[in-house]
């Protein structure tokens, strides 16, 4: 029966417990506040029901009461606000060295590509207890990546990356939903997140070999002729790309921006938007020449040229299976 009629969602990520705790606290606050109001109404409504000959008392109001029921709720609300904000920060601060998965959403499917190279459709395999960071973009309209059991959701937009992370804590198969209405088969844009024990995951990885994403990125890089300008030795008419990712870049207009994934992406499809100091705006746009998957591969490749930056190193071919910095050694994980 409970299988057909669940009352609480599965709790399968490191963040889910925090969300549930605040949710339960809010249930209590809401319960107490509504009980106060409903009991007061019921008591007053029976105690002071109309009796012939008895008139209502004349009462103007009460300043102390007004102040009390303005200030006390405001105090409670601020506490909830802070608690909610803390969780939101956790949700938006991916741990360094998380494994990376590139997600491309389109009407009406999810295309996922592991940095290690495995490609999946509407399904994502992850090992338990590994931090996973999703770098997501859309090929068409806005979608939203939603995994109820992980309590995470993030809209996926065309033309930019949005990012979300999670650490699964319990093996199992969980729903993946598209939560932003995206047209005809919005409700068909669903899939599974398969959380596996490390050994099973290992086996899955081995049965799905593939070149790494950064390796395919390197191929695209050479095919498109990027290397003519972006020479490794810095002698080209474009800046050398080693060590760029994750560092501040000084722009021509004096601003300095952090070279994150969105910066790399923009530099490829809209190179005129931010010109690196000391270079001329001569790079052509590659908008329309690369599809989202190729773009992701290029970004992964450029990132791999900055081994020191988080997310840079583990896309190196030599380190396919276990992300470095994953502090719980494989085989030793508890659920």
């Amino acid at each position: 029966m409970l299988n057909n009629f669940p009352l609480w969602p599965a709790r399968a990520s490191s963040i889910a417990g925090n969300v549930d705790a605040l949710f339960i606290f809010l249930l209590i606050v809401a319960g107490v506040m509504s009980l106060l109001v409903f009991v007061a109404i019921c008591v007053f409504a029976t105690k002071y029901r109309h009796r012939p000959g008895v008139n209502a008392a004349k009462i103007e109001g009460s300043l102390p009461l007004e102040i009390a029921w303005t200030v006390i709720p405001l105090g409670v609300f601020m506490a909830i606000f802070v608690w909610g904000a803390v969780i939101y920060f956790q949700e938006h601060t991916p741990p360094r060295d998380a494994a990376e998965v590139y997600v491309v959403a389109k009407q009406w499917m999810w295309k996922l590509e592991h940095a290690e190279g495995q490609r999946e459709l509407n399904e994502l395999h992850v090992p338990v207890d590994r931090d996973v960071r999703l770098i997501m973009t859309s090929q068409d309209v806005i979608h939203s990546f939603f995994v109820p059991a992980f309590r995470i959701k993030q809209d996926v937009l065309p033309g930019r990356y949005t990012v979300i992370w999670f650490r699964a804590t319990k093996p199992g198969t969980y729903h993946l939903f598209c939560a932003e209405y995206c047209g005809t088969l919005h409700s068909g844009m669903v899939g599974n997140i398969v959380v596996m024990n490390p050994a099973d995951y290992e086996a899955w990885v081995n049965s799905n070999p593939g070149g790494t994403l950064s390796a395919s990125g390197e191929k695209v890089f050479n095919e498109l002729g990027c290397a003519t300008c972006h020479r490794m030795n810095g002698q080209g008419s474009g800046p050398a790309l080693q060590g760029v990712f994750g560092k501040p870049v000084l722009l021509e207009d004096g601003r300095s921006v952090e070279a994150d994934e969105n910066y790399l992406r923009e530099s490829i499809v809209d190179p005129g938007a931010k010109i690196v100091n000391g270079y001329r705006p001569i790079m052509p746009t590659f908008q329309g020449l690369v599809n989202e998957e190729q773009l992701n591969a290029l970004v992964a490749y450029v990132k791999s040229l900055s081994p020191a930056a988080p997310g840079g190193a583990e896309t190196k071919p030599s380190e396919v299976k276990v992300a470095p910095g994953n502090n719980s050694p494989v085989g030793n994980q508890v659920q």
Binding site: L22, F23, L26, A85
Partner: peptide, 15 residues
């Protein structure tokens, strides 16, 4: 109040 709490809204928005 639930929806205005950032950490909760992430889970329940658009549901």
């Amino acid at each position: 109040l639930f929806l205005a709490a950032l950490g909760i809204d992430v889970h329940v928005t658009d549901t």
